[in-house]
Design a protein around this nucleic acid. Structure first.
Length: 568
DNA sequence: GCCGTTTTCGGCCCGACTGTTTTCAGTCG
């Protein structure tokens, strides 16, 4: 499955949890957690490089990493695993149940799994334990129940929709904004953090909404509810003068925020959601820009706030100029009702023109996806319709494309001479998802090496919550894409979000170029690239990395250059 | 555990909320 880095990171996370369970020093726990996160996000494979080069990894953790790479574990982890059953660690997955409670339940009652906790609660055995009043026990019971039915994190498209609904339901607010992982454009989120400026009554307006299923906690400053879909939404009321500091604090992520507070502390100041203070004196708080500037750094775009080096870059004034939605000049992957879209060619093109694009590719499915009933006659007829439509849209170049199917052996459909008639050739995996890692790698590499293929569509084929990524040696695929000048798609469809940002980051290191496409099957889907741009920003892409920010001439020259490196 | 433009030792981020508690521990973000 994963790169060595991901396995190492998971082992360190487990070690951090077990270490915390035994009451280990909190600072050491944090060191293990930070190292795990840094290793997971490190672009080089640890097997090829030196763990010591990863920030947050010192000699002690480097030794553990080395031992893990050699034999799949390390001594200290083995020892903790021998003392604490796996189920005790999983107890910490129950909301409101942390390491202290987990260990106490295990030591006092032998509770070593969520199931045995459930049983202990039902039998009333928690009563009498220190800190275990009736409400705490009831909250544990509810927490287990909620966790059972809540399921997975949701993708950003669903979160975005809910965020709009929440904002609309608070008309009395002077200002409303979504913070948290949704603002950081994470591909999936576990809940929504909403900030508002407005009267105290907003809280009761909020809890009375029809989308609220349950009130989890309620205070003057923050209220948490669970929605009918099972998603947690936190609303925080913020004084206008603290808006910027609060946005920073609740946007996170936790690591980024902690580093900012350390920077403040180094200067003898204090940073919180209320502001940046020198003693009682307020230094900055009204806007994010003001707070970052007071700390001597550039404003950091939310998608970069992960404590993965952005703080240092911002202090040096060297943050990359991230690709923005406005930079996109076109869309290279869209469908119409000729195959599985629901909008006509004319409607899709008109909507694309309204977005101000300077080029637009229609890429309906190719014949091997038999259910789409594509034929050469239909494709050629569509090409003629597109040519006629072109006359109505002089400012936008219409490109006739196709979405090819990458067969199990890496070949694609349409004969070569037909293929050459298309302006844009996206090739995607639509079947045989369960191939072995070797087969899938060869398949994707072969598609990259096919000179008829311009773009690999939704490269991992994952669907969030429904289908896992295919198994492939991604480094090998990225090397092939870079070598052949094959573009890798960032499919913006929110349940795909494919490539995911961590793979985009890795691919970029290999010199791969990307296209941010909608994969639209209907007119409203043409707005999806805002999610794809979020993925690209999380991977620190600049416009030069994204071919559909380029002028048409440069784009076409790159595509038809068979991968010759292209510079602006 | 990690880390260093006052440091190789002694620091290491902040506040809200809950429940159980006579002043605070645990959890969360």
């Amino acid at each position: 499955m994963a790169r060595a880095n991901d396995e190492v990171a998971e082992a360190l996370r487990e070690y951090a949890d077990l270490f915390a369970l035994e009451g280990g020093d909190a600072f050491r726990v944090r060191s293990y957690q930070r190292a795990a996160k840094a290793i997971a996000g490190y672009p080089e494979d640890l097997r090829a490089g030196h763990a010591r080069d990863v920030p947050g990894v010192g000699s002690a953790i480097a030794a553990k990493v080395e031992e893990f790479l050699g034999r799949g574990s390390f001594r200290q982890l083995d020892e903790l695993r021998a003392r604490i059953p796996e189920g005790v660690r999983r107890l910490m997955g129950v909301p409101s149940l942390g390491p202290k409670t987990a260990l106490s339940l295990y030591r006092e009652l032998g509770v070593d799994s969520v199931e045995s906790l459930s049983l202990a609660i039902d039998e009333g055995r928690l009563r009498g334990l220190p800190g275990m009043g009736p409400r705490t026990v009831e909250n544990l019971r509810l927490g287990i129940e909620r966790r059972r039915q809540a399921g997975e994190r949701i993708h950003l498209g669903v979160a975005d929709h809910l965020a709009e609904k929440v904002a609309e339901s608070l008309p009395g607010a002077e200002r409303v904004a979504v913070a948290g992982s949704a603002r950081r454009m994470c591909e999936t989120v576990g809940g929504l953090e909403v900030l508002a400026v407005g009267p105290a009554e907003l809280m009761s307006v909020f809890t009375a909404q029809s989308y609220v299923a349950e009130i989890l906690s309620a205070g003057d400053a923050e209220t948490s509810v669970r929605t009918v879909q099972g998603l947690q939404v936190d609303l925080r009321l913020v004084p206008a003068e603290s808006w910027g500091a609060a946005l920073i604090h609740f946007t996170g992520d936790a690591g980024h925020d902690a580093r900012l507070r350390e920077l403040a502390a180094e200067r003898g100041w204090r940073l919180s959601e209320h502001g940046l203070f020198d003693g009682d004196g307020r230094i900055a708080s009204r806007s994010e820009e003001e707070v970052y500037a007071a700390l001597g750094m550039q404003w950091v775009p939310p998608p970069l706030r992960e404590d993965r080096g952005e703080i240092e870059a911002a202090l040096r004034g060297e943050l990359p100029a991230l690709v923005e939605l406005e930079d996109l000049r076109g869309d290279l992957h869209t469908h119409t009702d000729l195959t599985d879209g629901i909008a006509s060619l004319e409607d899709m093109v008109a909507a694309a023109a309204a977005r101000g694009y300077s080029y637009f590719a229609v890429t309906d499915h190719a014949p091997d996806l038999a259910m789409q009933r594509m034929t050469l006659e239909k494709a050629l007829a569509q090409r003629e319709r597109l040519a006629r439509l072109q006359e109505d849209f002089p400012g936008m170049r219409l490109l006739h494309g196709t979405e090819l199917n990458i067969g199990p052996d890496g070949s694609v459909d349409w004969p070569q001479e037909v293929l050459e008639g298309f302006d844009v050739r996206v090739a995607s995996v639509h079947s045989h998802f369960a191939q072995s890692r070797d087969q899938m790698t060869r398949r994707l590499v072969a598609a990259c090496e096919n000179p008829g293929v311009h773009v690999i569509g939704h490269p991992t084929t994952r669907k969030i919550g429904r289908r896992p990524m295919v198994d492939a040696d991604w480094q090998a695929v990225f090397r092939a894409a870079a070598r052949t000048g094959t573009v890798l798609e960032i499919d913006s469809y929110p349940d795909r979000a494919d490539l995911p940002s961590d793979l985009v980051r890795l691919a970029r290191r290999h010199g791969v170029k990307f296209s941010i496409d909608s994969d639209a099957h209907a007119v409203p889907h043409l707005a999806y690239p805002r999610f794809g741009v979020g993925i690209a920003q999380r991977a620190a892409l600049t416009p030069d990395d994204v071919v559909n920010t380029w002028p048409l001439d440069r784009l076409l020259a790159f595509l038809d250059g068979g991968g010759a490196p292209s510079r602006p």
